[in-house]
Design a protein around this nucleic acid. Sequence first.
DNA 1: TGGCTATCTGGCTAAATTGCCAAATACTTG
DNA 2: CAAGTATTTGGCAATTTAGCCAGATAGCCA
Lengths: 109, 109
Amino acid sequence: MDERRQARLEARAKIIKAMAHSTRLLIVEELAKSEHCVCELTEMIGADVSTVSKHLTVLKNVGIVCSEKRGNQVYYQLRTPCILNFFGCVESVLEATAKEQALLCLPER
Amino acid sequence: MDERRQARLEARAKIIKAMAHSTRLLIVEELAKSEHCVCELTEMIGADVSTVSKHLTVLKNVGIVCSEKRGNQVYYQLRTPCILNFFGCVESVLEATAKEQALLCLPER
DNA sequence: TGGCTATCTGGCTAAATTGCCAAATACTTG
DNA sequence: CAAGTATTTGGCAATTTAGCCAGATAGCCA
């Protein structure tokens, strides 16, 4: 396969992979509303702080979020809000599947 | 955390996870142009047929593609083309990161 | 300075993912 | 029916990921 294309696909996959976790999706949704520090996110998520911190690192490494230290806390912000467009599409897939499932439940003619 | 929300996030993550692999992104890109049978995709990808088949199963399980057996072959099609919107956004993230990298290379003032 | 809070990092285990081979299955054609 | 092609499935080894704990680091305040 074309090496250039392969590299491009891998770069994309890396970003998508960073979104491929329910906790990280939650983080993105919340940061879309407003910035938050790690402790706030940790409370919402209900996992160990270290776990949340690592999720944030994943998102940061691919450039989805950025962070800023203020005093004692680190505030995270959504860096590329267009990432929210993801969700509309994902919903479409879910809806299409749901509709199909519904059809299967209809009585045969 | 709200259980309903958790379930919704997990459903989304499942779909996004299915996209989170360069080979599967290639498949989606190709299917966006036209349907293909497994053997055609296998040739483009250059991996074992069984590997490609499993990637297709992943995409099918979450409803991104659907398949139709015609004679000896199974043709796969993109079921929800809006999935392509993903890419625009992913590109934005990549571009933003690239720009930032470029800035780092500028001489200091 | 000492103690407290917030965050990150290292290390570990359990679980999931990937990719290959081999074997099973389904169809087509001679 | 036999042989050949296309696809899927089972199984295995290697790699990656997730989440927790413990410990390190950084900044705040008394």
